[in-house]
Write a protein that binds this DNA or RNA. Structure first.
Lengths: 246, 246
DNA sequence: CGGCTCATGTAAAGATCGTTCACATGAGCT
DNA sequence: AGCTCATGTGAACGATCTTTACATGAGCCG
């Protein structure tokens, strides 16, 4: 350990050179391992090969580090949601579901970020930059909902896009938080979190009057309006959003 | 402080008499204030007027205290959900929505319990009693979903009750976690969390084919297929699940 | 090149916490 | 009365968070 320290110092000299970044990376790894609660400032410093006091040159305190990670997380989150949305291509509903999956994928693949963003107790409004990043990410969902709402079938009242966005967000967060991550996934499920969320969103969209069974792949097209399932959908398992009704 | 300590000791003698309970109460208060992460074993001891080592006579460690609180929380949670469900009276859909509201009410009114149960990082499967309590609570939702699924309108495949229960749980948890508690509630919303969840569940149920608009909207645009027990509405604002469509 | 300055890192120290251990107390039973 | 055991105390250890005084050296200016 002292050996490694000397080694490092030989490599980089007295000054680390990029300690701030190194600390963020170290913290990210630690949070992924032990959760935001278990992560310690001292550990991050040790992992970066510096003394316990060094991090205070770059972050006011432990919370500011956490807040920085959350902010960075929201930025990556936004990027992934944006890519998934792809401006609504090839069609709005398909893209919309892709956003839902991207949400879960992010929660699953970046547990450290997700933890810092939503479960670490970091108050979103503490840091304006953090709040802004959070809002930008949400705005992707919001924009998608906006487009979806505009497609609301004629004859039905058009749902407020903001409400739809909040609904989708809460579904995605609920599934991610309860079933899709780390030890929360210990709960035994009859289906994968992805399938669960997909079915949930499809049922929800159908509740708003959207035809959710687009594009039957092999069989002939289905005039979708009233018997909305009963045909094999593309992303939808046969038998509607919830597999074979037995 | 030493004064208070002597005072207390005068009141109760060397032995506290009910330290376990006092610790649970103290912890509950502390968690409500500062979150499960911020709560410390030593603080709880201090608040109960005993030394820092005393709690170890009643709890193996801090995690066991947290776990006990979570368990107790699940028990109260179950009681409230059971009361709200009221065995499906007066009709299944109404009772079902009451359960949703009870969920949110619990999250709002018992933030400490909710925090310990879902956000403290306590692994549910660590303690068998905890897991059992958790399952009992979920079984209320599950039973309600079962009854609801049995009412599934003819002509549509019957949704699996388990899936419905998981969907409802994830919606409720998502709304509670994102919007309905403590500093998470800082996010500005166009509607209350209760209304948000109610609309969400209604839309979802409609997506399953349930007639959710007891008391049809002003512009009757809904062809409610079969009203099994659709009678006088309650709780649903006129105009569909999201208020007046403008 | 020499020296100044300031960002960056270190060491030491105080405060708090989780946890353990040896010991004290006293409530209840015999 | 005396024994016993659950319950509480005090001291101690190691870890963490955070501050403070001091050390280092990179970059700049003359």
């Amino acid at each position: 350990m002292s050996w490694r320290k000397e080694q490092r110092r030989a490599e980089r000299g007295y000054h680390h050179g990029n300690l701030k970044e190194a600390l963020l990376q170290a913290a990210l790894g630690l949070i992924a391992e032990k959760g935001a609660a278990g992560f310690t400032f001292a550990d991050a410093a040790r992992m970066a090969g510096v003394s316990a006091a060094a991090p205070y040159r770059h972050f006011r305190d432990r919370d500011e580090l956490l807040s920085s990670i959350a902010q960075r997380g929201f930025e990556q989150f936004e990027a992934r949601l944006t890519a998934a949305w792809d401006d609504g291509r090839p069609d709005t509903v398909t893209a919309f579901e892709r956003v839902g999956k991207a949400y879960l994928a992010f929660a699953r693949e970046e547990p450290a970020f997700y933890n810092a963003m939503f479960e670490s107790g970091v108050p979103v409004d503490a840091n304006p930059a953090l709040q802004a990043a959070s809002e930008r990410a949400f705005n992707i969902i919001r924009a998608a909902a906006e487009r979806l709402a505009a497609l609301s079938p004629p004859g039905t009242p058009r749902p407020p896009a903001m409400m739809m966005a909040l609904h989708i967000w809460s579904m995605a967060h609920g599934v991610a938080s309860l079933f899709s991550r780390g030890d929360a996934a210990r709960r035994k499920l009859p289906m994968s979190p992805d399938e669960l969320l997909e079915a949930e969103v499809l049922i929800y969209l159908r509740g708003l009057g959207f035809p959710t069974d687009r594009r039957p792949p092999a069989k002939g097209a289905e005039p979708p309006p009233v018997p909305p399932e009963a045909s094999s959908g593309s992303g939808v398992p046969p038998g509607g959003p919830w597999g074979k009704p037995k």
